[in-house]
Design a protein around this nucleic acid. Structure first.
Length: 587
RNA sequence: GUUCCCGUAGCUCAGAUGGAUAGAGCACAGGAUUCCUAAUCCUGGGGCCGUGGGUUCGACUCCCGCCGGGAACGCCA
């Protein structure tokens, strides 16, 4: 049993021994580390309901707890807080049974769930940009946290491959290269295996096509028509479209790989095309769909707050479909195929209304009966002017640009000072990639998901303080110490840590506290809680490193400190993995 | 206009289910290295938690109003 649960159990027993209800013992990490490690506030509400003096009640409970040698001290302070300080021997002895396993003492209070996660949302033929950073990074971390606590998670990239952009591209290509067989209505042969363009071509072509549509009505109308033809199965367009997808997916996958973000499914909106039309037929037949202004809609009435909701448009007046419809069909597919307890959408918070509509419509048509649908929105990345982040030259920063900028900053840092002077150029290149990407990811993960945050390019390239490189540096130090002392990283039963300084005690307590952070992060789907834990762990380690010499310590102290370093590394690596951060061997 | 989100130190941000003296990082001022990596550590100043009410023994936290910032609102995704 982990430390918090052991204390909870002891306090619960003390409440019961006093003849009190142990329903709400309110045991948690102490707010006052100067006087205690853990506290129980349970006596306060209890005293209120029993109309008793809270301090006297707390004192009764404390008296029971003092009998246990587990605690160094138990005191009653303020209006009736019970403050508990754990005995040093307890902290030093329980490392192996609690922290040595893969879960570092995490114990799940409920049963395992099956979860489908939707956290990518890249678009075919469009370069990944700053807007794709948060869903990828946050989604990946939430996925890892869910898996860590024991959920079965299926991650789906949910590619944008079915809408108007496809029609725009087809039309642009038609104008540029009308002789291609895809545009020849009389062509009956096999279309070429290889695309007559590259992924880069697509990326440059799309913004031009988009601009054409804005300036030229005829072009826009043709693009519209071509989108419809593609969706209806136009043979040549489908062949062309397959080229779009295979080229884009290759590029997209490469970038996600660099970010350490992966998906189990690479499906797109198009994947549910046939299912969607069957669904539409069914809804027409049972009278759910209503004709309105030429479109076919699902009216939603009022939301839970009593305000009118716009309807979901299942079929547009031109007979085509859009993303609300494909999202609904996708829910049906996911429910049928995976029977999930929950479907999580890590998507921009500005899509809030869209998801409210989609979720409500899905419930209304009966396809989401036993599944919790959650939109985990995130805020936008703003520049220092508090407007959506742009590069210094004013463009939308691509993911490539962000990664490269971060990488260069890491490299520059390595070459400027004393750091990494014995590294080869190859090592520097691979290390700066790891450090740069971690800097980028951590700068995002440390912020609370729902809030907009200000992204300063200086922050991205900074390596001091609350940054990715700070964490990595601490972890590299742990590895370095063990290596220099020829100490294997394996953990053994029976080893104990002796606490001789406050730094060691603080670090130990931090190690034991991981499960609590994991639980909070899991319950609220907030990776920043984990990111914050890792930062504090790194701080605690750096203090320990500074205050507690290892090499020159006596044999016994040295062993104890090496052991503490090993456990810290074990926990830190586990946590870094939850955030999706890679850690270099040296830096 | 309606609805949603946000407002905490000079700046960027933490403060889960209401609890004690509201914490970090940056910036600023000073200090530490013959010793395991100074991408480090220590010390210091800095706050009517937007504002006015309410609920409570107790509110940064919950409720209502106001102010300020951002966003969404039928055929784009």
């Amino acid at each position: 049993m982990n430390l918090l649960n052991q204390i909870k159990e002891k306090v619960r027993k003390a409440f019961v021994d006093c003849g009190l209800s142990a329903e709400n013992t309110l045991v948690r990490l102490s707010d006052r580390p100067d006087i205690s490690d853990y506290q129980s506030n349970g006596a306060l509400p209890l005293a209120k309901s029993m109309r008793q003096n809270p301090r006297a009640l707390a004192e009764q409970i404390a008296e029971k707890l003092r009998l246990d040698l587990f605690f160094e001290t138990v005191s009653v302070d303020g209006p009736g807080f019970i403050n508990m300080k754990i005995a040093n021997e307890v902290l030093g002895k329980n490392l192996f049974p609690i922290l040595a396993d893969k879960k570092c003492g995490y114990e799940r209070p409920d049963t395992s769930k099956t979860i489908v996660m939707d956290y990518g949302g890249p678009n075919v033929a469009k370069a990944l940009h700053v807007g794709h950073l948060r869903p990828a990074i946050i989604g990946e971390s939430i996925k890892r946290i869910c898996r860590f606590v024991g959920d079965k998670v299926i991650g789906d990239v949910h590619l944008g491959d079915w809408g108007k952009p496809m029609g725009l591209l087809i039309t642009e290509l038609q104008d540029r290269n009308p002789a291609l067989p895809y545009f020849d209505p009389n062509f009956t042969g096999e279309y070429p295996q290889n695309a007559p363009f590259t992924g880069k071509d697509l990326e440059t072509m799309y913004p031009i096509a988009s601009q054409h549509a804005k300036e030229d009505e005829a072009f826009a109308a043709r693009a519209h028509e071509n989108t419809k033809l593609l969706q209806d199965g136009h043979r040549g367009y489908r062949a062309l479209w397959k080229h779009f997808i295979s080229l884009s997916v290759a590029d997209i996958r490469k970038l996600y790989d660099e970010l350490g973000v992966s998906f189990d499914l690479w499906r797109g909106e198009s994947h549910v095309h046939e299912r969607l039309w069957k669904m539409i037929e069914r809804l027409r037949a049972n009278g759910t769909l209503i004709k309105d202004q030429g479109a076919e809609i699902i009216p939603l009435g009022k939301s839970k707050n009593g305000n009118d909701l716009p309807p979901v448009i299942m079929v547009k007046s031109d007979g085509g479909v859009m993303y609300a419809a494909t999202d609904i069909a996708t829910i049906e597919e996911r429910v049928e195929e995976f029977h999930p307890d929950a479907i999580l959408y890590v998507v921009d918070a500005r899509q809030g209304l869209h998801f409210e509509q989609v979720f409500l419509a899905s419930q209304k048509i009966g396809i989401a009966k036993n599944v919790s649908l959650e939109h985990l929105g995130f805020g936008t990345i703003n520049g220092t002017d508090n407007k959506p982040y742009k590069t210094r030259s004013g463009g939308v920063p691509t993911l490539r640009y962000l990664i490269d900028t971060a990488k260069e900053a890491a490299l520059k840092k390595m070459e400027s000072g004393e750091m990494g002077r014995d590294l080869t150029p190859d090592e520097k290149a691979s290390i700066s990639q790891i450090v740069g990407v971690s800097a980028l990811k951590f700068a995002d993960l440390i912020n609370e998901r729902i809030k907009n945050y200000v992204f300063d390019e200086d922050k991205l390239t900074s390596t001091e303080g609350k940054t990715g490189p700070y964490l990595l540096y601490a972890m590299v130090r742990m590895k370095s110490v063990l290596e220099k002392m020829n100490e294997p990283a394996t953990l053994l039963a029976g080893d104990t840590v002796q606490i001789t300084t406050p730094a060691e005690r603080q670090l130990l307590l931090r190690l034991y506290a991981l499960p609590d952070s994991v639980q909070t992060a899991y319950d609220n789907r907030t990776p920043h809680v984990i990111a914050d834990y890792l930062f504090k762990l790194a701080q605690d380690f750096n203090l320990f490193y500074h205050d507690c010499p290892i090499k020159d310590a006596d044999k016994e102290t040295q062993q104890s400190r090496l052991l503490l370093t090993k456990y810290t590394l074990h926990v830190a690596e586990t946590v870094a993995d939850l955030l999706g951060l890679q850690v270099p061997e040296k830096m």
